[in-house]
Design a binder for these strands. Structure first.
Lengths: 231, 231
DNA sequence: GGAAACCTTGAGATAACCTTGAGATTTCAC
DNA sequence: GTGAAATCTCAAGGTTATCTCAAGGTTTCC
């Protein structure tokens, strides 16, 4: 989260400096500041920030105008800064697609809290990597990382693996696995499941005929032996 | 997970009905709805829900007030429902100890996903582990934990042990045990059952010929002596 | 002391699972 | 749309851990 890019758009130099120091102190490493809407658009055209903090009151292109331009090309989360008394602004801002607003003057902690909440919502933790004996499996990318190369998982392989990883170490019955693939009526699907298991093993095991990660528990089901629990 | 109690607090009847049907359809069996904070507190005093879904905007005691009261006595997870535009609410809610929020209007699936995520986080799946004299038996992994090593159970051994653990301390007849292994017609299977019992004892007893956990009750059946009840 | 109930061991039978290939189906690019 | 490629499904034959059962031994109880 701390490496998310924060773009600050404000014409007041003091405020830019203050906001930068708030995030610097909190450990954020990518804080970009610009003084106008035009500069902001130029920057967005080249790079993609994780969140934009936007002052409503600016000479030239104001916050609303900028927000509109941004929304025309991107869904990046936006936090608006409004002056006290501009109660209307928050509604106007929300209508245009702002994610939140903050009334000036604000406490540093307040700004931090809001930005963190927005980031948490907009970028739900995604780094589900399962460590196995021979490979890593990246669930979010549906890829197996094997000796530097990336091997994609198919839809069914992914579903099976996800179910097994969810219950890492525990036995998952053939019934449950079939159900996740084809719903309630799964009788007769066992043989197909087996084929998928085989293919999965060919991707995640050193020797698919002598599995050490995706284990068979005869008569009960399958289980996944992981080296580190899924985070 | 589906038997976790869900308490819905909302003054709008339509919303209560809608939320109830969402969870009913998803298979949840314990959905309680109340129309006010006062009712909610009265209910919490008597029973303990697994999660509380709370509308912020309510006449009388509002969501924040209720949340504060709840947090004074309990750490039960809380999901807040806020109306669009009440941006302040999220932060106030988080500060007071809400676990998540959801902006109205929302999609049924959205609510389900959030609640499931919270429940999963708050109540991590625990393995069913039976403690015996010499070993631990992990039912979810079908493994015996003996001096640090893990010994797998076969399907039949597992079924027998599960049945005995279900009736820990009580006598389970040979007939019942045979039935769980091979169905209604089990006459003549007693000798085979004995073999499985033997194998099981070799895995869970210090001395399989002098059992202290899986005991024979001559003429009646078998019983399992556990040190701690199955959790 | 004797019968009934249960234990112990080993070896063959078997059900559960593996493996491979080929046809059906879906997906994707053009 | 159309064709190619990827993916899914299913069947047939092979493999193996597990299950079954019998034969002989031991304990328990009357």
């Amino acid at each position: 989260m701390l490496d998310k890019e924060i773009l600050v758009v404000d014409d007041e130099k003091d405020l830019r400096t203050m906001i930068r120091s708030i995030f610097d102190n909190a450990g954020y490493t990518q804080v970009w500041t610009v003084a106008s809407g035009e500069e902001a658009l130029a920057l967005i055209a080249k790079k993609t920030p994780g969140i934009i903090i936007l002052d409503v009151m600016m000479p030239g292109m104001d916050g609303f105008g900028l927000l509109q331009e941004i929304r025309a090309v991107s869904k990046v989360p936006v936090l608006m800064l409004t002056a006290k008394g501009e109660a209307e602004d928050r509604f106007a801002g929300f209508e245009l697609g702002a994610d939140d607003y903050l009334v000036k003057p604000f406490l540093p902690k307040e700004l931090l809290l809001r930005v963190q909440a927005i980031l948490k919502r907009a970028y739900p933790e995604k780094d589900r990597i399962v460590k196995l004996d021979a490979v890593l499996v990246d669930l979010d990318r549906a890829e197996v990382l094997k000796e530097g190369q990336r091997i994609p998982l198919t839809a069914k392989e992914y579903s099976i693996f996800e179910k097994l990883a969810e219950n890492a170490g525990r036995i998952v019955t053939i019934g449950i696995l079939c159900q996740t693939l084809c719903g309630e009526i799964w009788q007769g699907y066992e043989t197909t499941l087996m084929t998928h298991i085989r293919h999965l093993r060919e991707k995640i095991e050193e020797n698919p005929s002598k599995p050490v990660s995706l284990l068979t528990v005869k008569g009960l089901g399958y289980k996944l032996r992981v080296k580190e629990p899924e985070k």
